[in-house]
Amino acid sequence: MKFRRKQRENVDINLASLIDVVFILLLFFVVTTTFTRETQLRIDLPEAVSGSPAEDQTKQLDIAISADGVFSVNNQILPKSDLASLMEALQKESNGDTNRPLSISADGKSQHQSVIIAMDAAGKLGFNHLRMTTVEAAPSAP
């Protein structure tokens, strides 16, 4: 008895659907990925022996000045370090509320002119609760 052999079918993997799945996964990862950019300035605060801690920091505005003279208001770095852009950023962040406490955190190596610009901007906008941020100095040995 002679049996007839069936012809073998060629088994192919359909790559079109596989490529579709990989493309959809790629799109998913691209859309769900978050890119963070650090917008904080590194500041080495000057030291002071006397002072008092800030009361309510939830609604406090903070001006940070780096050693290079770059300003940031509430961790938002300003594109220009001049009086007009600082006043505009303070006005925007405070929503016109000049009774909010304002803290100036200047690097110990920053120029005095940068601190004066920050104080001038606060004074021109009418802020009356101004605080300079420092770190507590280590006690000196006798």
Score class of each variant (00 low, 15 high):
T133E: 12
S110L: 06
F29N: 06
L61K: 14
T98A: 10
D68A: 06
G51D: 11
S94Y: 06
A118D: 02
V70E: 06
R5N: 14
T33R: 11
E47R: 12
V21M: 11
I13G: 05
K109G: 12
A122Y: 04
I104V: 15
F127R: 03
A106W: 04
V21Q: 10
L18R: 11
K124F: 04
L18M: 09
F23D: 05
I13P: 03
A48T: 04
G96D: 04
F127C: 11
A121S: 05
H129G: 04
Q111L: 03
L83Y: 06
T134K: 01
T39A: 04
D44H: 15
S52F: 06
K109V: 02
I65A: 05
I116H: 07
F3I: 09
T33C: 13
E88R: 06
F127I: 09
L90S: 02
P79H: 01
K92R: 13
K59G: 15
A122P: 03
R5P: 03
T34Y: 03
D97H: 05
T36M: 06
A54H: 04
G69S: 09
I43Q: 07
Q113F: 02
S72L: 12
L78Q: 07
L83T: 03
A48W: 01
D62G: 10
E93Y: 03
N95K: 13
H129F: 07
A141S: 13
L102Q: 01
L18F: 07
T98Q: 09
V11T: 10
Q113R: 13
F29W: 06
Q57I: 08
P46R: 08
R5V: 06
F23N: 05
V30S: 12
R4S: 03
S105H: 00
L90M: 04
P139K: 15
Q57D: 03
L41C: 09
T98I: 14
T36Q: 09
